[in-house]
Computed example of a mutant assay.
Amino acid sequence: MTKKDFHCMNGVLLSMNYTLIASTMSFLWTLGIFLKNDKGEPHMGQVWPGPVHYPDFLNPNAIRWWTNEVQLFHDQLPFDGMWIDMNELSNFCTGTNCTWNGTILGGVTECYLQFTNTHTKYDDPPFRINHYGKNEKLGYLTAAMTSKHWDGTLEYDAHSLYGLAESIATKVALTKVRKKRPFLLSRSTFVGSGAHAAHWTGDNKATYRDIGYSIVTVMNSGMAGIPMVGADICGFYDMASDDLCSRWIQTGAFHPFSRAHSNRDNAPKELYLLPKTTISARKALRLKYQLLPYYYTLNYEAHTKGYPIVRPLFFAFPQDPLAVDVSYQFLVGNHILVSPVITENATEIKAYFPTGTW
């Protein structure tokens, strides 16, 4: 399991990682369950649990295997939902062929594998992306681009599909194991992910700027077909002031997926530990719960028509040229306008109201 801390308000949320594998089960090798290195062996990486192999969720056998894994965990702990993390996929090491001599050196996120061939032609293609900075290779801190899937497809050609493929497999597994409509949260997404999983925007920071980022990101995700989306309220990294958390819950409470979450290295910052935030959270969440029938209707519209739950103003007012430039206000459906405070020490805000009765 991932060692990141998490908070759960109701029920049991099992936080599962793509690294939940039994690498000693050699019979899985013959099924092609894992990504392979250029020697035809399971590609090794390192994540929170230590040295790991990566399931190949594009393999037709993977869903059957993953369903069995989910069933085994559910038999031990009857959970209500699953949270899949680090599935971009992440790796604390960089290399095409990695081995481990049994020695653990440095911190938990420092690479202690022995690796070779860290650079291939697939790491430096003609079209470069800004991956950890312009000078980093495509295979940096992820599975090697030369890793192969079950049918010979290179990771270079399928890398962006990993989180989506895992989401599909996990939704199938959850539905079969729990025999209910599943709740599934995934960090990595791709086009089409919204039909299978909810999404959060990743490890953000405790800043007012990140409150603004969260608004824009949630709206963008909704328009990209991922309607159940939200950000870590109060920020994942660094400590947040009472004022910052107060403003953030006033915003985040109205996002479709609303969760306060923090790095395990921070001091505790649950909402109820901060006096001003407690008051803001009580007001905002009470209103959110009163609006749940409305949100449920919007979820149904998202499912049947593809509409985002949280929308930019221009989505509802396409004929209004001024609405295009409004980035930090958002609509819940077409009828509720949220105008958050995203600057420190603010005593007033300027909000834009499209033509209509508000």
Results as ranks from 00 to 15, higher is better:
Ile215Asn: 04
Asp75Asn: 11
Cys8Phe: 01
Asn91Ile: 01
Leu244Tyr: 03
Met82Gln: 06
Glu344Pro: 02
Lys3Ser: 09
Thr2Glu: 08
Arg259Cys: 14
Asp38Ile: 04
Phe254Leu: 06
Asn91Thr: 04
Thr357Asp: 14
Tyr307Asp: 13
Leu298Ser: 03
Trp65Val: 09
His7Met: 11
Asn204Tyr: 01
Arg311Cys: 09
Ala253Asn: 10
Ala260Glu: 13
Thr142Cys: 14
Trp100Met: 07
Val324Cys: 06
Pro268Asn: 11
Leu331Gln: 04
Tyr307Met: 10
Ser147Glu: 01
Thr343Asn: 10
Ala173Ile: 12
Leu337His: 06
Leu273Pro: 04
Phe257Thr: 03
Asn263Val: 00
Gln250Glu: 15
Gly222Tyr: 01
Ile309Gln: 08
Ala346Gln: 14
Lys121Glu: 15
Met82His: 01
Met239Gln: 12
Thr19Ala: 13
Met239Ala: 09
Met223Asp: 07
Asn135His: 12
Gly202Thr: 04
Leu77Trp: 05
Met1Ala: 08
Ala165Thr: 10
Leu113Ala: 05
Leu161Pro: 00
Ile33Gln: 05
Gln71Asn: 14
Ser241Asn: 06
Pro51Lys: 00
Val70Asp: 04
Pro227Trp: 01
Pro340Ser: 07
Leu28Arg: 07
Asn91His: 02
Ser221Ile: 00
Arg259Ser: 13
Lys283Glu: 13
Glu344Arg: 14
Val12His: 06
Ala240Tyr: 00
Leu77Cys: 13
Ile168Phe: 00
Trp200Ser: 02
Phe190Ser: 11
Gly230Glu: 06
Ser188Gly: 15
Glu301Ile: 08
Leu285Pro: 02
Leu322His: 13
Val70His: 01
Asn101Ile: 08
Gly230Tyr: 03
Gly133Lys: 04
Lys121Arg: 13
Glu88Cys: 09
Ile104Ala: 11
Thr146Met: 09
Ile349Cys: 06
Gly107Leu: 07
Tyr208Asp: 04
Tyr237Arg: 09
Ala144Trp: 01
Leu31Ile: 00
